[in-house]
Simulated scan of single mutants.
Amino acid sequence: MGKTYKIFAAIHSEARSGDVWTYEKFIQRPRLIKISRPKSNIYIIVTYRHIDENFESIYNPEETNPEETNKQETNKDGSINKKNLNKKLKRYRLTPNALVIDSYYKTKLFLENQTEVELCVVPVKSYQFCYHIKYLWQHPNDSIRLATYLSVVSIVISLLPISYFHELIRDFFKFLISCLCRCFNS
């Protein structure tokens, strides 16, 4: 069963980093977590980051300096415009069930900003090697994805038996030479 989370957009400095921030605490601090939708097979593997005071002060700048916000939100007569102030703070305020995630992963899970959705968040064990590869395979940073693709291809090629590979190349050249000979003879 899942838990209900409120989805928030990642700030600019966290975009494309592969991190998801949440208040969720685990018994052992995992490096990676698996986030899935309970009624489908869609899931992502992301780096787990815990929301702390430093993150809150960056994500919620209006709450850290209310005097500055009050100066900017005033009516024509000089009184504080509480209606606009509350709207502004509500837009940024993190809730206890917050999940701060970038647009790349939101698209993969079909999530919208400021919506509450049921998700299963489970830590990934360090010995679950396939999930570590999946994390790199679906990473939002293109250079990390490309390096992973090339690494997997090079591992697969290196695992091919050398003798089989030599026979394959030899047969390919025999075929190529025979095709060329037929072309020139006709």
Score class of each variant (00 low, 15 high):
M1P: 01
M1Q: 03
K3I: 15
T4P: 01
Y5D: 07
K6D: 09
F8S: 09
A9S: 15
A10S: 07
A10I: 00
E14I: 04
E14G: 04
R16W: 02
R16V: 12
S17K: 15
S17Q: 15
S17F: 08
Y23M: 08
K25M: 00
K25E: 12
I27D: 13
P30Y: 00
P30V: 04
K34Q: 06
K34F: 00
R37V: 12
K39Y: 14
I42G: 02
Y43D: 08
I44W: 05
R49Q: 15
H50G: 03
H50F: 02
I51E: 08
I51A: 06
E53G: 01
N54I: 01
N54Y: 04
F55L: 04
F55N: 00
F55D: 02
F55E: 02
Y59L: 05
Y59N: 06
Y59S: 05
Y59E: 06
P61I: 02
P61A: 02
T64C: 04
N65H: 08
P66E: 06
E68T: 07
K71W: 13
E73W: 04
N75V: 11
N75K: 15
D77V: 12
G78Y: 11
G78H: 09
K82A: 12
K83L: 14
K87L: 11
K88H: 13
K88E: 10
K90W: 08
K90R: 14
Y92E: 11
R93F: 09
L94A: 05
T95E: 04
T95N: 03
P96C: 09
P96Q: 11
N97W: 08
L99Q: 03
I101M: 04
I101D: 01
D102R: 05
Y104E: 10
Y104N: 09
T107M: 15
L109Q: 11
L109N: 07
F110T: 10
L111Q: 08
L111H: 06
E112P: 02
E112Y: 11
N113H: 10
Q114A: 12
Q114K: 13
T115M: 06
V117W: 03
V117G: 05
E118I: 01
C120G: 03
C120P: 03
V122K: 03
V122G: 03
P123K: 02
V124I: 14
S126M: 07
Y127S: 06
Q128E: 15
F129D: 11
C130D: 10
Y131A: 11
H132A: 00
K134C: 00
K134L: 10
L136H: 10
L136K: 13
Q138D: 14
H139F: 12
P140F: 12
N141D: 13
N141G: 00
D142Q: 12
S143W: 04
S143R: 04
R145A: 08
Y149I: 05
Y149M: 01
L150K: 06
S151P: 03
V152L: 11
V153L: 13
V153C: 11
S154L: 13
V156H: 08
L159D: 15
I162S: 01
S163P: 01
F165Y: 09
H166A: 10
E167P: 00
I169E: 02
R170E: 14
R170Q: 14
D171P: 06
F173G: 00
K174F: 10
L176S: 13
L176R: 12
C179M: 12
C179G: 09
C181Y: 15
R182W: 09
C183M: 14
C183N: 10
F184Q: 05
F184N: 00
F184P: 04
S186Q: 09
